[in-house]
Amino acid sequence: MTKLIVLITIAIILLFVFIIILIYAIIKKSKRLLWLSALSLALLFCTGTYTLYYGLKKGKEKTLSITKNAFEKAFPKFDSETPDTESNKKHFSDFLKVNITPDVKNIYCFDDTFGQDADFMFAFNCDSLTTIKIIEHHLLKKDSLAGNDSESLQHDFFWWDKKKIRELECFSWDSNNEGKNIHKRFWYDQKLKKAYYFEFDL
Protein backbone atom coordinates (compact mmCIF):
# COMPACT_ATOMS: atom_id res chain seq x y z
CA MET A 1 0.00 0.00 0.00
CA THR A 2 2.87 2.39 0.83
CA LYS A 3 4.47 1.72 -2.55
CA LEU A 4 1.22 2.54 -4.34
CA ILE A 5 0.89 5.85 -2.45
CA VAL A 6 4.50 6.75 -3.35
CA LEU A 7 3.87 5.96 -7.04
CA ILE A 8 0.70 8.06 -7.10
CA THR A 9 2.55 10.94 -5.41
CA ILE A 10 5.38 10.77 -7.97
CA ALA A 11 2.86 10.69 -10.83
CA ILE A 12 1.12 13.81 -9.47
CA ILE A 13 4.47 15.62 -9.07
CA LEU A 14 5.47 14.70 -12.63
CA LEU A 15 2.11 15.99 -13.89
CA PHE A 16 2.68 19.38 -12.22
CA VAL A 17 6.29 19.47 -13.52
CA PHE A 18 5.06 18.78 -17.06
CA ILE A 19 2.37 21.48 -16.88
CA ILE A 20 4.80 24.09 -15.47
CA ILE A 21 7.53 23.34 -18.04
CA LEU A 22 5.00 23.37 -20.87
CA ILE A 23 3.63 26.76 -19.80
CA TYR A 24 7.14 28.20 -19.57
CA ALA A 25 8.02 26.69 -22.96
CA ILE A 26 5.01 28.35 -24.58
CA ILE A 27 5.65 31.70 -22.87
CA LYS A 28 9.40 31.69 -23.60
CA LYS A 29 8.93 30.01 -26.98
CA SER A 30 11.87 27.80 -26.14
CA LYS A 31 12.51 24.59 -28.04
CA ARG A 32 14.74 23.35 -25.24
CA LEU A 33 11.87 23.71 -22.73
CA LEU A 34 9.51 22.00 -25.20
CA TRP A 35 11.89 19.03 -25.38
CA LEU A 36 12.12 19.06 -21.59
CA SER A 37 8.31 19.08 -21.30
CA ALA A 38 8.16 16.16 -23.76
CA LEU A 39 10.65 14.27 -21.60
CA SER A 40 8.61 14.98 -18.44
CA LEU A 41 5.49 13.82 -20.30
CA ALA A 42 7.21 10.54 -21.23
CA LEU A 43 8.26 10.03 -17.59
CA LEU A 44 4.69 10.83 -16.50
CA PHE A 45 3.29 8.28 -18.99
CA CYS A 46 5.69 5.54 -17.85
CA THR A 47 5.10 6.23 -14.18
CA GLY A 48 1.32 6.46 -14.67
CA THR A 49 1.23 3.19 -16.64
CA TYR A 50 3.25 1.34 -13.99
CA THR A 51 1.14 2.87 -11.19
CA LEU A 52 -2.03 1.70 -12.94
CA TYR A 53 -0.59 -1.80 -13.46
CA TYR A 54 0.60 -2.02 -9.85
CA GLY A 55 -2.72 -0.72 -8.49
CA LEU A 56 -4.74 -3.24 -10.53
CA LYS A 57 -2.40 -6.06 -9.47
CA LYS A 58 -2.73 -5.20 -5.78
CA GLY A 59 -6.48 -4.72 -6.17
CA LYS A 60 -6.80 -8.17 -7.74
CA GLU A 61 -4.71 -9.77 -4.97
CA LYS A 62 -6.80 -8.06 -2.29
CA THR A 63 -10.07 -9.09 -3.96
CA LEU A 64 -8.90 -12.71 -4.26
CA SER A 65 -7.77 -12.72 -0.64
CA ILE A 66 -11.12 -11.36 0.59
CA THR A 67 -13.04 -13.82 -1.60
CA LYS A 68 -10.92 -16.75 -0.41
CA ASN A 69 -11.32 -15.80 3.26
CA ALA A 70 -15.07 -15.34 2.84
CA PHE A 71 -15.39 -18.70 1.06
CA GLU A 72 -13.31 -20.51 3.70
CA LYS A 73 -15.39 -18.90 6.42
CA ALA A 74 -18.66 -19.94 4.77
CA PHE A 75 -17.38 -23.35 3.62
CA PRO A 76 -14.47 -24.36 5.88
CA LYS A 77 -12.33 -27.23 4.64
CA PHE A 78 -12.24 -30.66 6.21
CA ASP A 79 -8.82 -31.06 7.82
CA SER A 80 -7.64 -34.66 7.65
CA GLU A 81 -4.09 -33.85 8.80
CA THR A 82 -4.54 -31.73 11.92
CA PRO A 83 -7.01 -32.48 14.74
CA ASP A 84 -9.28 -30.02 16.52
CA THR A 85 -9.02 -27.20 13.98
CA GLU A 86 -11.84 -24.67 14.02
CA SER A 87 -13.15 -26.04 10.73
CA ASN A 88 -13.13 -29.62 12.06
CA LYS A 89 -15.03 -28.52 15.16
CA LYS A 90 -17.59 -26.73 13.00
CA HIS A 91 -18.07 -29.78 10.77
CA PHE A 92 -18.33 -32.00 13.86
CA SER A 93 -21.20 -29.87 15.18
CA ASP A 94 -22.87 -29.69 11.74
CA PHE A 95 -22.76 -33.44 11.11
CA LEU A 96 -22.88 -35.07 14.54
CA LYS A 97 -25.38 -32.55 15.94
CA VAL A 98 -23.98 -32.66 19.48
CA ASN A 99 -22.13 -30.06 21.52
CA ILE A 100 -18.36 -30.29 21.77
CA THR A 101 -18.02 -31.05 25.46
CA PRO A 102 -14.62 -31.35 27.23
CA ASP A 103 -14.48 -35.09 26.55
CA VAL A 104 -14.59 -34.55 22.76
CA LYS A 105 -11.11 -34.12 21.35
CA ASN A 106 -8.72 -35.26 18.61
CA ILE A 107 -11.35 -34.53 15.96
CA TYR A 108 -10.21 -35.56 12.49
CA CYS A 109 -12.46 -35.37 9.48
CA PHE A 110 -12.45 -35.87 5.73
CA ASP A 111 -14.89 -35.29 2.89
CA ASP A 112 -15.04 -36.65 -0.63
CA THR A 113 -17.62 -34.69 -2.60
CA PHE A 114 -16.13 -35.20 -6.05
CA GLY A 115 -18.11 -37.26 -8.46
CA GLN A 116 -21.67 -38.49 -8.19
CA ASP A 117 -21.57 -39.76 -4.61
CA ALA A 118 -20.28 -38.08 -1.46
CA ASP A 119 -18.93 -39.40 1.81
CA PHE A 120 -17.79 -37.91 5.12
CA MET A 121 -15.56 -39.45 7.79
CA PHE A 122 -15.03 -38.39 11.41
CA ALA A 123 -12.81 -39.92 14.09
CA PHE A 124 -12.60 -38.49 17.60
CA ASN A 125 -12.24 -39.32 21.26
CA CYS A 126 -15.21 -38.97 23.59
CA ASP A 127 -16.91 -40.63 26.54
CA SER A 128 -19.87 -43.01 26.34
CA LEU A 129 -22.38 -40.28 27.23
CA THR A 130 -21.53 -38.41 24.04
CA THR A 131 -21.92 -41.59 21.98
CA ILE A 132 -25.39 -42.12 23.45
CA LYS A 133 -26.37 -38.60 22.38
CA ILE A 134 -25.10 -39.24 18.84
CA ILE A 135 -26.88 -42.59 18.59
CA GLU A 136 -30.15 -41.15 19.87
CA HIS A 137 -30.05 -38.02 17.73
CA HIS A 138 -29.35 -39.91 14.50
CA LEU A 139 -31.78 -42.73 15.34
CA LEU A 140 -28.99 -45.26 14.89
CA LYS A 141 -29.81 -48.92 15.37
CA LYS A 142 -27.42 -51.60 16.56
CA ASP A 143 -26.48 -54.04 13.80
CA SER A 144 -26.59 -57.77 14.41
CA LEU A 145 -23.03 -58.20 13.14
CA ALA A 146 -19.83 -56.38 14.13
CA GLY A 147 -17.96 -54.24 11.64
CA ASN A 148 -19.79 -52.78 8.68
CA ASP A 149 -20.83 -53.25 5.09
CA SER A 150 -19.19 -50.09 3.77
CA GLU A 151 -15.44 -50.62 4.25
CA SER A 152 -14.75 -50.45 0.51
CA LEU A 153 -16.13 -46.91 0.45
CA GLN A 154 -13.93 -45.69 3.29
CA HIS A 155 -10.61 -43.94 2.74
CA ASP A 156 -7.29 -44.76 4.37
CA PHE A 157 -6.00 -42.52 7.15
CA PHE A 158 -3.78 -43.14 10.16
CA TRP A 159 -6.67 -42.03 12.38
CA TRP A 160 -9.20 -44.37 10.73
CA ASP A 161 -8.51 -47.91 11.96
CA LYS A 162 -10.39 -50.21 9.56
CA LYS A 163 -9.06 -53.33 11.25
CA LYS A 164 -10.35 -52.17 14.62
CA ILE A 165 -13.66 -51.05 13.17
CA ARG A 166 -14.32 -54.59 11.87
CA GLU A 167 -14.34 -55.78 15.49
CA LEU A 168 -16.59 -53.04 16.89
CA GLU A 169 -20.36 -52.95 17.21
CA CYS A 170 -21.87 -50.99 14.36
CA PHE A 171 -24.81 -48.63 14.70
CA SER A 172 -26.48 -47.63 11.45
CA TRP A 173 -29.24 -45.66 9.81
CA ASP A 174 -30.37 -45.70 6.17
CA SER A 175 -32.80 -43.38 4.47
CA ASN A 176 -35.58 -44.80 2.34
CA ASN A 177 -35.83 -42.08 -0.27
CA GLU A 178 -36.37 -42.83 -3.92
CA GLY A 179 -33.14 -42.44 -5.87
CA LYS A 180 -30.07 -41.47 -3.86
CA ASN A 181 -30.09 -42.68 -0.24
CA ILE A 182 -28.14 -41.41 2.76
CA HIS A 183 -26.38 -43.96 4.98
CA LYS A 184 -24.85 -43.44 8.42
CA ARG A 185 -22.47 -45.73 10.31
CA PHE A 186 -21.12 -45.28 13.83
CA TRP A 187 -18.66 -47.31 15.92
CA TYR A 188 -17.26 -46.78 19.42
CA ASP A 189 -14.19 -48.32 20.98
CA GLN A 190 -15.02 -48.39 24.68
CA LYS A 191 -11.45 -49.26 25.72
CA LEU A 192 -9.75 -46.44 23.81
CA LYS A 193 -12.78 -44.12 24.05
CA LYS A 194 -12.58 -43.50 20.33
CA ALA A 195 -15.53 -43.06 17.99
CA TYR A 196 -15.83 -43.35 14.23
CA TYR A 197 -18.63 -41.81 12.18
CA PHE A 198 -19.12 -42.45 8.46
CA GLU A 199 -21.83 -40.87 6.32
CA PHE A 200 -22.27 -41.53 2.62
CA ASP A 201 -24.85 -41.44 -0.12
CA LEU A 202 -25.43 -43.79 -3.03
Rank of each mutant, 00 (worst) to 15 (best):
159 W>L: 09
71 F>G: 02
90 K>P: 00
145 L>P: 02
25 A>T: 06
88 N>Q: 05
75 F>K: 07
23 I>K: 04
201 D>R: 13
124 F>Y: 13
172 S>I: 07
30 S>C: 08
147 G>R: 08
194 K>S: 02
202 L>A: 05
141 K>L: 15
168 L>H: 02
133 K>C: 09
173 W>R: 14
42 A>E: 10
156 D>L: 10
117 D>I: 03
22 L>H: 08
83 P>S: 04
180 K>G: 06
37 S>F: 14
108 Y>I: 00
66 I>A: 06
105 K>D: 05
100 I>F: 08
85 T>Q: 11
68 K>R: 15
184 K>A: 05
20 I>C: 14
162 K>N: 11
135 I>E: 10
70 A>S: 11
156 D>Q: 13
52 L>I: 10
195 A>K: 01
89 K>Y: 01
146 A>G: 01
69 N>C: 02
158 F>R: 06
178 E>I: 12
163 K>P: 02
58 K>V: 13
171 F>V: 02
56 L>R: 13
24 Y>G: 02
195 A>M: 01
196 Y>T: 01
172 S>R: 07
65 S>W: 09
22 L>K: 07
48 G>I: 06
59 G>H: 05
17 V>T: 08
175 S>M: 14
41 L>R: 01
44 L>T: 07
69 N>Q: 11
89 K>I: 08
64 L>I: 11
14 L>M: 08
200 F>H: 07
32 R>C: 05
194 K>M: 08
54 Y>M: 10
52 L>W: 11
80 S>W: 02
70 A>V: 06
11 A>Y: 04
60 K>C: 03
